Simulated scan of single mutants.
Amino acid sequence: MPPRRVITGRSQEPRQRFAEELRLLRAAKGDSLRELGDKVGWDWSLFGKMENGHTLGSPEVVQALDQYYGTPGLLLALWELAMADPTQFKERYRRYMVLEAGAVSMWQYAPSVIPGLLQTPEYALELLSMGGLSGDELGVQVEARMGRREPLLGDDPPQFRAILSEAVLRTPLEDPEEWHVQLEYLHTMSHRLNVTIQVLPLSAGLHGLPNTDTMFLRGPDGQTVVWAETAYSGDLVQESKAVEQLQLRYDRLRDAALSPDLSRQFIERMLEEAPCEPLT
């Protein structure tokens, strides 16, 4: 599989940036629009409209293109930005989304909710609806979030470590059956060679990241950036000293967390305690 592409500063407007990337990827393959349609399995005229910016296509089409071009998650991340209302995605978050799609390794601390890369559709649906999304917009955002998981499941996946506060695993969904599915998915992902899941028990006490969801991304160039998010705002941290300070806090938090094996056992206990059918 080709190495992940390094995103450069081309078009800054998300819709134009998406269309431009489609044109560049097809040119690199040397395909005509008709050849692309035959190989990917969609009407070639749709790809022409997408490359001209007349339409964005569906998540299914974009995922098929990601697979064909060997760019897992990249096009879907750009598509998500292009679909989103500009008022919802500030420039620093747009930049973070692109960096996430191209990251070779990631590590995260989740203090309150399951990380997006480990969410089931049902979990994402309830979480995003609680944030105010509804209707078609909600469906689009859930689909896009599910697409962000694909790089972890591919043939050349990035390494991902997630430290979950115990509180995350004790905050269930409204539907017990859907919560059971989410816990099972966590348990399954914890067995993947590229995924490490650790639980930070409440008994660990206070630490340096009490209410900050923190995602570290290392790019192909070896540079690490951090997305630090609270309930009200998020910030892309790129300055090396600030990144180092956050990394130190994360390292101390990791030292206090349960080992991967003990964390898997903790999730198994949560599965045993959680009912698998809706209460009547």
Rank of each mutant, 00 (worst) to 15 (best):
L248W: 11
G37T: 08
A204E: 11
V243G: 04
V61C: 15
G222F: 12
A103C: 13
D235V: 14
P278E: 12
A167T: 15
E272Y: 09
E174M: 09
R269Y: 05
L262T: 14
A256P: 00
S11D: 15
S32L: 01
L117Y: 00
M130E: 11
L33D: 06
T212S: 03
G30N: 14
R145H: 12
R95K: 11
Y69F: 15
A204C: 10
S129D: 07
V225T: 15
E184C: 04
L271T: 05
T224A: 02
R264T: 05
G205V: 04
G30K: 14
D255Q: 12
T214P: 03
Q12E: 11
D251Y: 02
D38W: 09
D43Q: 14
R249W: 13
P115H: 06
D155Q: 12
P172A: 00
G139P: 13
G41W: 14
N194V: 03
Y93I: 05
V199Q: 01
S203M: 05
L99C: 06
L138N: 10
W42K: 05
Q88D: 07
L33E: 08
A27T: 11
T8S: 10
E60F: 12
E174R: 10
Q88T: 07
Q245A: 07
R92I: 05
R252D: 05
D66E: 08
E143T: 12
D66I: 01
G234R: 07
E268F: 14
W107M: 08
E239L: 14
L76D: 00
Q88G: 02
Q223K: 09
Q119A: 02
S129N: 07
V168I: 06
L133W: 11
P111R: 08
R148F: 11
R264Q: 06
A144L: 02
E122G: 02
A274K: 00
I7T: 12
S134K: 15
P260Q: 11
Q159W: 04
H54K: 15
V113T: 04
E80L: 09
G30I: 15
Q198F: 07
V61G: 05
F18E: 00
Q67P: 03
V62L: 08
I267K: 03
V140A: 13
P172G: 00
P111I: 09
E277F: 14
Y68W: 15
A231I: 06
D156L: 13
D85R: 15
L209H: 07
P2S: 13
A84M: 04
M146E: 13
P176D: 04
M146I: 15
V226R: 00
L246M: 13
